[in-house]
Design a protein around this nucleic acid. Structure first.
Lengths: 203, 203
DNA sequence: CATAAAAGTTACCAGTAGTAAGTAAGCCTG
DNA sequence: CAGGCTTACTTACTACTGGTAACTTTTATG
């Protein structure tokens, strides 16, 4: 499989790029899936059929790689969860479907999720935060709009968004390490907590 | 400061241990506070006035070090938040104080918190989960008891605990990177969300 | 056709986790 | 009180990894 014909130095015949950025990122995902987080850039390069400096040229260092993969993952998750709630109004049932879709998406990209949420040392927390921000930004907008429509103060939207995203992340990590737990049960429990929290004090 | 007299090889005069486990862990905390996460074991050893193999003997490798520090941090956080809610019954005000105390405790141990929650590669997610578990286990007990006393199903306690801890963690990371944000405001907003969520559907 | 640009690889450096081997002091037995 | 075992360290190494500088070959251009 990895018996890619060894290439000589120098510009390749044909003058075309051998791999582009997405090829490298795809390779990175496969390696992470196979070797877990902590996979080396060397492995990624080999998997992409190329050498390390190319990885640096196409995507950058370890931190940038993590960022790029985080971006991809969060886009996919957003897509998966958008389908679950598409166009519909916010209510308990749609919320539960959203949580469920989130869990299933995490399970599907298990290793990648662990890699992205789980640190590549250095400014990892900032990275984790920026990943979260990709989710919170649209969520905060929705929340603010919804709060206003309910006659409540929309100021809480930003903090609540981060809280909710954190909750989903932690639940995801917990759930994928407990495979015997039914996804529907957890989704329903968490959406209960969220829904009642969102609605505010009982009049 | 770090001009600890260089020790020769061999058993030290007096036959006593030069440093114990806690000394190494204290040194690790200082180094992390100074150099940020990603501090090397070598630095830790130097700070402890000792060499690397001693670190390995006393606490173990990088993963074990992270675990040990996580344990310490979560104990301190538990202590700090316990004071804030001591003996009192669970209500919105005490919950708000708890969130506030949590945020302040995180700010106090800022670098350590980022180190612990923010990945040391490899099985970091498992580590993060086990840290969370230290908080969720007592929380789940309290929640289950409280739910029962309210005539509700206590089964949700475990999932809810992880959700709440995840929420607090994410909010903490977010908050300490936004120093201009008033702690009381965030604490109140988050405790609103949590309290209403916990109480369940309005009758 | 000479020369610059493009697209690679090779070969290296610095730093780091982890370990094996060496060394000096204390302790115990005859 | 002499020799051997144990204790508590250090020194010195290996293996690997992130990152980069220098080199090599093909293509494009005036």
């Amino acid at each position: 499989m990895s018996s890619v014909a060894p290439r000589r130095p120098g510009r390749p015949i044909g003058g075309q790029l051998v791999v582009d950025r997405d090829h490298v990122l795809d390779a990175a995902e496969r390696v992470i899936k196979r070797e877990g987080p902590g996979a080396s850039l060397e492995s990624v390069a080999v998997e992409a059929g190329v050498t390390k400096p190319i990885v640096y040229d196409r995507v950058g260092g370890r931190a940038e790689l993590a960022d790029a993969l985080a971006e991809r993952l969060s886009d996919r998750m957003l897509e998966a969860t958008e389908d679950a709630i598409a166009g519909e109004t916010l209510n308990q049932a749609s919320l539960s479907r959203l949580v469920r879709a989130n869990l299933l998406a995490v399970a599907e990209h298990r290793e990648l999720f662990l890699y992205v949420t789980g640190g590549n040392t250095e400014q990892t927390a900032i990275g984790r935060l920026s990943l979260a921000e990709r989710s919170t930004t649209p969520l905060a907008k929705t929340l603010a709009f919804w709060r206003k429509s309910q006659g409540h103060d929309p100021k809480v939207a930003e903090a609540w968004s981060f809280g909710i995203v954190g909750m989903l992340q932690m639940i995801s990590v917990w759930w994928i390490t407990q495979p015997e737990r039914a996804v529907d049960e957890v989704a329903s429990q968490i959406s209960d907590l969220m829904w009642n929290g969102l609605q505010g004090p009982r009049k």
